[in-house]
């Protein structure tokens, strides 16, 4: 069990790093539509949160957010938002919808991305020069849509072995 946990941590770390570099190199440059870009680390955080629980989700969200904060020079903001998202995504999980997770997950991504945008741009708009509504409508909503589409796409292309592997219940460790 402990071995599986280590493999899990390693695989998630590698995936996160790959997503991170993909995000800053390929996605932001070539896949952006207007100002909209999907947030791969947010998608991964939600995936971890749903599959592995609140502790894993919030820890992963925190670390992933911290990586993104390095880029924008605003330490703690993404970490805070993604920690909250990683923790609260558990409440989206129900037994019924897990049967249609492929379709359900993008919806979760969309709404969680909206919540993430509210937190993120809400904090950003504390400065008087930035308007929350403008930021939310111009960036938040398109990004949420794009992230949802990207989540669905990734789900389609992700190997079933990986999806089955990320189904580890951390409670068994304790």
């Amino acid at each position: 069990m402990r071995r599986k946990r280590n493999q899990l941590i390693l695989s998630l770390t590698l995936t996160a790093l790959v997503f991170y570099f993909l995000q800053i190199t390929f996605i932001n440059t070539f896949l952006s539509i207007g100002h909209s870009t999907p947030d791969l680390l947010l998608i991964l955080t939600l995936f971890v949160g749903i599959r592995l629980g609140q502790i894993s989700g919030s820890l992963f969200g925190f670390l992933a957010g911290l990586l993104q904060d390095v880029l924008i020079g605003f330490y703690g903001l993404n970490a805070l938002c993604k920690t909250i998202i990683g923790f609260s995504v558990k409440y989206f999980r129900t037994e019924k919808v897990l049967l249609v997770e492929k379709y359900y997950f993008p919806i979760v991504v969309f709404f969680s991305s909206l919540v993430h945008s509210v937190l993120f741009f809400g904090f950003q708009s504390l400065d008087a020069d930035l308007n929350f509504y403008t930021l939310f409508m111009n960036y938040g909503v398109p990004n949420a849509l794009y992230s949802a589409v990207m989540a669905f796409t990734l789900w389609l292309f992700t190997p079933n072995a990986f999806l089955d592997f990320i189904n580890y219940d951390a409670k068994h460790e304790y």
Partner: peptide, 25 residues
């Protein structure tokens, strides 16, 4: 309540990190 303790701990860490910034926000 370990989930909540971890969550609270991470929130506090994030808040501390936020405090280190000098942004107008």
């Amino acid at each position: 309540y370990k989930n909540h303790f971890v969550f609270l701990f991470l929130i506090i860490i994030s808040a501390i990190l936020l405090q280190t910034n000098t942004n107008p926000q």
